[in-house]
Computed example of a mutant assay.
Amino acid sequence: MPKRIILLIIVIFLSGTLLLWRGESEANQSQLYTIGVLSANDMRLAKLEGLREGLKKLGYIENINVEFAIVNAQGDREKLRETAQDLIDRQPSLIIAMGGVEADILKTLTVTQPIPVIFAGVALPLERGLIIDYQFPGGNLTGIDNLQSELAGKRLEYLSLLLPSVKRVLVIYDPQVPSGHLSITRVEKEAQKLGVEISLVPALRLEEIEETLDKVENRFDGIILLPSYNWETNPSIETLGLNRKIPIVGLYEPEMARGFLLSYGPSYYNQGLQTATMVAKVLRGQDPGKIPIETAYSLDFVINLDVAEKLNLDINPQALGLADRVIPKGGELHR
């Protein structure tokens, strides 16, 4: 066959492939996807920044080929179910659950309306019944395991490293949180390893913590809050540590602004950023039940030196070198 004919065939093939690719690309650009977002409170909406940034990098730009339908229960747990149903009734392309309580409700409500659901950070999705397997979740849910239950022991370790004088720690857990048992196990093992005495107290209200602190004869050297929706929505927790002169260990970076000494866990921004890749997979036609669960790929250790000064704490300077971020005395967050 003459070379000229062969070249002509190659050109025709490549041109056809290019036109097909452009056609698919233009079709994706012309289709407007609606992404539902269900949040239980204002704090969890901080994940939206990373989500939007991640989607933009993947070619999904707000008001061009994607739009968001965002609903927020404003910390009202009773309202959350009604809010979730209203969002489902809008028939979005998919729904993002901003946390565990949102994912639990969507799991129930989408049984008869199987809209794809992606959870942007949940503790123990298998144990709480959201999925049947990490590699093949099944059903209509997939998402990010934020490892919050597994990190409880590490938070105690960081508290002890930051304050070597710590000997007695109050550990507050929410009896309504399904993943609480693993957090307790992890913190108990770490306490035994460090030689730290811990007191486990179930609490749903700040008053219950206050009562515990009033009853004890010997002062606690620190308080660790295990994962709980209740503390995210309780503004009174902000003053507990400062008023009692006890350092509090939290889960997320935003809690540093609430008067906590340190936090260790995945940032809201990174959870949103990581979720964006899973959203893109679903929008491109993949079955969420066949998209493997991902674990949070970034964990941040944040120290608040402003709180340390207000509590008159003697901080171990070597621990500062391990921090991913530090809030200086009287200053803003250093990255």
Rank of each mutant, 00 (worst) to 15 (best):
L151Y: 02
S179G: 14
L161Q: 12
D174Q: 11
L163M: 15
Y158H: 13
L170A: 11
Y173A: 01
Y173T: 10
L170P: 07
S179R: 00
I144V: 15
L162M: 13
L151P: 03
Q148Y: 01
R155I: 10
Y158N: 06
V169S: 03
L170R: 07
L159T: 08
E157G: 01
G153V: 03
L162D: 05
Y158E: 07
L159S: 07
D174E: 09
K167Y: 09
N146D: 15
A152T: 05
P175D: 08
V171I: 15
D145C: 04
V177K: 05
D174H: 13
D174W: 12
Y173K: 07
L163W: 02
G153C: 02
I144D: 01
I144Q: 00
V169N: 04
E150C: 00
A152I: 08
N146H: 06
R168W: 08
R155K: 12
E150N: 10
E150Y: 05
K167M: 08
L159D: 07
L156D: 05
G153P: 04
I172T: 09
L163F: 11
Q176D: 14
R168Y: 05
E157T: 08
L147D: 10
K154W: 04
P164D: 09
A152W: 00
E157Y: 14
V169H: 05
R168L: 04
I144K: 00
S160D: 10
Q148P: 05
V171K: 00
L151C: 06
V177F: 13
L156W: 03
S179V: 10
L159C: 10
V171E: 01
K167T: 14
S160N: 12
P178W: 00
K154P: 03
L161S: 14
V166D: 01
L151S: 04
V171F: 03
L162K: 03
P175K: 08
P178V: 08
N146F: 00
P164L: 13
P164S: 09
L163H: 02
A152P: 05
P175A: 10
S165I: 12
I172S: 02
L161I: 12
D174V: 10
P178C: 02
